[in-house]
Simulated assay, not measured.
Amino acid sequence: MYKLEQETEADGWEVEALYDLCFAPGRTALSSYRLREGVRTIAALSLVLRDEGGVLAAAIRYWPVRVGADDVLLLGPIAVHPTRQGEGLGALLMTESLDLARNLDWDRVLLVGDAPYYNRFGFTKLEGVVMPPPTNPDRVLGLSLRQDAWRGVQGQVERAACFAPNGTLP
């Protein structure tokens, strides 16, 4: 049995430790991290899963970014503790957080990842959306949370300016 909760400030060190465990040591050098620097997560969408003993099993975070004049959610990182992989926890975090994003009236989600994994959640390769280098363009994926939300959206992905902690524009 797992408990799904919104990540709190007190969870931060533990979530970072999970990301360190699950990803390569150079993870913070990736271009997506440049977009996150100095920007708060979308708190309402940044979730943790804990087991019955309170041990962190998985986490997901979202960040605001802009593509041209459009607000976009940048999904990631998402991580599942190596001893818990294969239990469907990553899929649970994906589906729950994407449903929350729809309910918060977000229109589109962007991530950098493996299409074969993320296609099952509806993500497809984005054309005309450019992540800062050195990002492989084939790994830039998007999901429309509203019909045709990515139609006409193109340009460089940039750091968002200002969002309230609940994920809405102030």
Rank of each mutant, 00 (worst) to 15 (best):
T28L: 11
R108V: 07
Y19P: 04
L141Q: 04
A59Q: 10
D148L: 13
A69R: 10
E9M: 13
G68M: 09
D70A: 15
P137W: 05
L74H: 02
A69F: 00
L104Y: 10
D71H: 14
L98M: 14
R120M: 05
P165G: 08
S31C: 15
V109K: 04
P82H: 13
Q6W: 05
R108G: 12
L56F: 12
F23K: 00
Q85L: 12
T8C: 05
R108N: 09
A69G: 10
R61G: 02
E96S: 13
R139E: 11
T41D: 14
Y19V: 11
A164Y: 09
E87F: 02
V109Q: 03
A149Y: 12
A57S: 15
S97W: 03
D70K: 11
A69I: 00
L104V: 02
G38H: 13
F163M: 15
I42A: 03
L98V: 10
R108Y: 09
L110M: 03
V140R: 04
A91I: 01
F163R: 10
T135H: 03
V15T: 12
L21F: 02
L4G: 02
G76C: 13
P25D: 06
A160E: 11
V39E: 14
P137E: 11
V109I: 02
L104K: 05
A79D: 03
Y117K: 07
H81M: 13
T124Q: 09
N136W: 01
A29C: 09
